[in-house]
Structures are given as structure tokens and as C-alpha cells.
């Protein structure tokens, strides 16, 4: 049987297929996807720690499995699943979709790759093309992230082919934060380093079992301190940095350490 005859045969079979049954499969698959996504998302909200991550990660995998199962049911309902039939069907689909939905299909394929390579998972804090936020959902075609300003950004999966993806916590709950302090160079650096370390150690947000580091760099305009530590929850990262900054400034002021500013430099130059 040549390919044109096979294609005509498949089209005839499609027309003759039980439309009601096919509709049931499509609706059933769709309902299952909605139900599983919502129930797992609801459950994840009530879980803490690593269990939250595991539950969120299960959503796209479960969705893929449901889609695959639905697809197999659909195909076997309309045609006899022989090698010839499947080859022709995939050929037809590939030809049609290849032109019309190239990027769409590319994103869907990339979506499958993301499940395997896991460059980001639900619950991760990622930055792609300048958009930073928490991955809320991984759909078949795109990932939804929520920025700190509560804006949802849809990122097509095809970005993984050629873009840099910055993942701050990579599937864990350990997300490093850094608070910056810019000080006038005339001070006791060892004392300031200790003070900033204590500021992080005494923060209510800090994950104390993780390391606290203070990086000191001398710059032409002063001394740059970078206080690095981990919050208990990645969601608290902005509150944590704010807390470190407020209490760090207060502790440094108490010790008479001067902060450097653009104005003071300008005054000094003049």
C-alpha cells in the first residue's frame, strides 16, 4: 500500500470514528488534567519543606502521563495502531504542524525535555531574559513564573534551547541571599565583618545551619561588603534581605561606621 492510499484510508477511518467516544476521551483527559493539577497545587500549599517541592514537581509529570494515555486511547479509537498507520499519521501531523506551529511544537518538545533535565521545577526561583520569579506552573508549552511584584510571566519552554537560565535554588529550599553595604574606607574591617556576621546570625529569617559569609572588596569609592546567608524559606528572600539591611545599617551606625554615598564622593572630589 503506497502512502497516498494509506493516508486516504486513515482519513476515511477518522470520519467513520465514533465522535462521541472521541469527545469523551478529550473531555475526560482535560478533566483529569485540571483535577490533578488543582488538587496537587492545593495539597502543595498545605505542605511544608521538601514535600511541597515534590508535590509541585509531580504536576507536570502527571499531566504528561495523562496526555500520553489520552493520546494512545484517542489514536487506538480512530485507527488500528499498526506501524504503517502510525507512520503515516505522524508524517501527516509532522508535515502540517511543522509549518504552522513550528515554535509551538518546539516549545512542547522543550517542555518534555524540561521534565527530564529539570532546569526549573515548580517552586524554583529562576531568571530568564531578565524576568525573575518563582515557577508556579509548568505547562506543556510554557512555564508560569510569579515575580516579586505579583506579576505572572509566561515563558515558552523553547527558551531553554538558547537562553541562559539562572536557577537560584535548583529544586531545594536553599536560596542564597545577599545584602550589600557600601562603607567609607576608613574603618576596622575585621570588626565590621564580625558585626555583619552577627546581624545575619540573629535574623529571625536565617537558616542557621547554612553558612553565613561576608565578602569584603575594596573599591575606588569605598569598601563593599556583601553579606550572604540563606533564609528558612525561599519565599522570604526579600523580607530577609530587607531585615539584614535594616539591622545591618543600625548595627554599623551604632559603631560609628560611615556609609559612602555618591554625594559624599562628589563633595570629596570638589
Amino acid at each position: 500500500m503506497d502512502s497516498s492510499v494509506a493516508a486516504a484510508e486513515i482519513v476515511r477511518t477518522l470520519i467513520a470514528a465514533d465522535v462521541f467516544q472521541l469527545a469523551l476521551i478529550v473531555i475526560g483527559t482535560w478533566l483529569l488534567i485540571i483535577l490533578s493539577s488543582r488538587s496537587l497545587a492545593w495539597l502543595a500549599k498545605r505542605l511544608a519543606g521538601r514535600f511541597r517541592f515534590y508535590t509541585l514537581s509531580a504536576i507536570p509529570i502527571l499531566r504528561l502521563l495523562i496526555i500520553l494515555a489520552g493520546l494512545i486511547l484517542f489514536i487506538t479509537s480512530v485507527i488500528e495502531p499498526t506501524v504503517e498507520n502510525l507512520t503515516v499519521l505522524l508524517g501527516l501531523l509532522g508535515f502540517g504542524l511543522g509549518f504552522a506551529f513550528k515554535d509551538y511544537v518546539s516549545s512542547m518538545l522543550a517542555g518534555i525535555v524540561t521534565l527530564y533535565e529539570a532546569p526549573y521545577r515548580p517552586g524554583d526561583w529562576i531568571e530568564i531574559n531578565g524576568a525573575y520569579g518563582e515557577v508556579r506552573t509548568i505547562n506543556m508549552r510554557n512555564a508560569e513564573i510569579v515575580t516579586p511584584d505579583d506579576t505572572v510571566v509566561f515563558i515558552p519552554h523553547l527558551k531553554i534551547w538558547d537562553q541562559l537560565i539562572f536557577n537560584a535554588n535548583d529544586g531545594s529550599q536553599d536560596l542564597q541571599c545577599a545584602a550589600d553595604f557600601y562603607l567609607h574606607p576608613n574603618h576596622d574591617a575585621a570588626q565590621v565583618k564580625q558585626v555583619l556576621h552577627d546581624v545575619a546570625l540573629t535574623s529571625s529569617f536565617v537558616q542557621i545551619e547554612k553558612p553565613i559569609n561576608v565578602i569584603v572588596q575594596e573599591k575606588p569609592w569605598g569598601t563593599h561588603y556583601r553579606l550572604k546567608a540563606y533564609p528558612v524559606e525561599p519565599l522570604q528572600q526579600f523580607d530577609f534581605i530587607t531585615d539584614l539591611t535594616i539591622r545591618g545599617k543600625a548595627a554599623l551606625r551604632n559603631r560609628g561606621v560611615e556609609f559612602t554615598t555618591a554625594v559624599s564622593l562628589a563633595q570629596r572630589d570638589s
Binding site: 558585626v195 546581624v199 540573629t202 539591622r247 548595627a251
Partner: peptide, 11 residues
């Protein structure tokens, strides 16, 4: 436990 406070000045 009454000789410290979890405060930057309390250690």
C-alpha cells in the same frame, strides 16, 4: 540562656 539576646548587639 539569660546571658544573650538574639540581637546584633546581644551576643
Amino acid at each position: 540562656e539569660k546571658v544573650y539576646l538574639r540581637h546584633a548587639e546581644g551576643l
